[in-house]
Lab assay of single mutants.
Amino acid sequence: MAAGGDHGSPDSYRSPLASRYASPEMCFVFSDRYKFRTWRQLWLWLAEAEQTLGLPITDEQIQEMKSNLENIDFKMAAEEEKRLRHDVMAHVHTFGHCCPKAAGIIHLGATSCYVGDNTDLIILRNALDLLLPKLARVISRLADFAKERASLPTLGFTHFQPAQLTTVGKRCCLWIQDLCMDLQNLKRVRDDLRFRGVKGTTGTQASFLQLFEGDDHKVEQLDKMVTEKAGFKRAFIITGQTYTRKVDIEVLSVLASLGASVHKICTDIRLLANLKEMEEPFEKQQIGSSAMPYKRNPMRSERCCSLARHLMTLVMDPLQTASVQWFERTLDDSANRRICLAEAFLTADTILNTLQNISEGLVVYPKVIERRIRQELPFMATENIIMAMVKAGGSRQDCHEKIRVLSQQAASVVKQEGGDNDLIERIQVDAYFSPIHSQLDHLLDPSSFTGRASQQVQRFLEEEVYPLLKPYESVMKVKAELCL
Score class of each variant (00 low, 15 high):
5 G>K: 14
5 G>Y: 11
11 D>Q: 15
13 Y>Q: 15
24 P>A: 11
38 T>H: 02
39 W>S: 08
39 W>L: 03
40 R>G: 09
41 Q>P: 04
42 L>I: 13
43 W>E: 14
48 E>L: 10
49 A>D: 01
51 Q>S: 11
52 T>H: 08
58 T>A: 04
59 D>R: 06
60 E>N: 08
60 E>H: 06
61 Q>P: 00
64 E>M: 07
67 S>T: 05
71 N>E: 05
77 A>D: 15
78 A>D: 05
80 E>K: 12
83 R>A: 10
84 L>A: 10
86 H>N: 00
88 V>N: 03
89 M>T: 03
89 M>G: 06
92 V>Y: 03
92 V>D: 04
96 G>W: 01
97 H>Q: 10
99 C>Y: 07
101 K>C: 07
105 I>W: 10
112 S>W: 00
123 I>H: 15
125 R>E: 08
128 L>K: 15
131 L>F: 04
132 L>T: 07
139 I>Q: 03
147 K>M: 11
152 L>R: 02
153 P>K: 12
156 G>P: 00
161 Q>K: 05
166 T>L: 11
171 R>E: 03
172 C>W: 10
172 C>T: 09
176 I>H: 02
178 D>I: 05
181 M>R: 12
183 L>I: 13
185 N>H: 09
189 V>P: 11
189 V>L: 15
199 K>D: 04
206 A>E: 08
207 S>P: 14
215 D>N: 06
216 D>Y: 08
217 H>T: 12
221 Q>F: 10
225 M>P: 00
231 G>W: 07
232 F>T: 01
236 F>R: 06
237 I>K: 08
237 I>C: 14
238 I>R: 01
240 G>S: 11
247 V>Y: 10
248 D>L: 07
248 D>T: 04
250 E>W: 14
252 L>P: 05
260 A>M: 13
266 C>H: 09
266 C>P: 02
267 T>V: 06
270 R>W: 04
272 L>F: 10
272 L>N: 12
274 N>V: 12
275 L>C: 07
281 P>R: 07
283 E>W: 01
287 I>Y: 00
287 I>A: 10
292 M>P: 02
295 K>Y: 01
296 R>D: 07
296 R>W: 07
309 R>C: 08
315 V>K: 02
319 L>M: 11
319 L>K: 00
324 V>W: 03
337 R>W: 02
337 R>N: 01
339 I>D: 06
342 A>N: 02
347 T>I: 08
348 A>L: 09
351 I>T: 14
353 N>G: 11
353 N>D: 11
353 N>S: 09
364 V>K: 02
369 I>T: 08
370 E>D: 15
374 R>Y: 08
376 E>S: 00
377 L>F: 02
379 F>E: 03
379 F>C: 04
383 E>R: 03
384 N>L: 11
386 I>D: 03
388 A>H: 05
390 V>W: 07
392 A>R: 07
394 G>M: 12
394 G>N: 13
397 Q>M: 13
398 D>W: 11
398 D>N: 13
411 A>F: 00
413 V>I: 12
415 K>G: 07
425 E>L: 12
444 L>P: 02
444 L>E: 04
447 S>L: 14
452 R>Y: 10
454 S>L: 12
454 S>V: 09
456 Q>P: 03
459 R>A: 11
460 F>A: 06
464 E>W: 12
467 P>E: 13
467 P>W: 09
471 P>R: 14
473 E>N: 15
476 M>T: 14
482 L>K: 13
483 C>I: 11
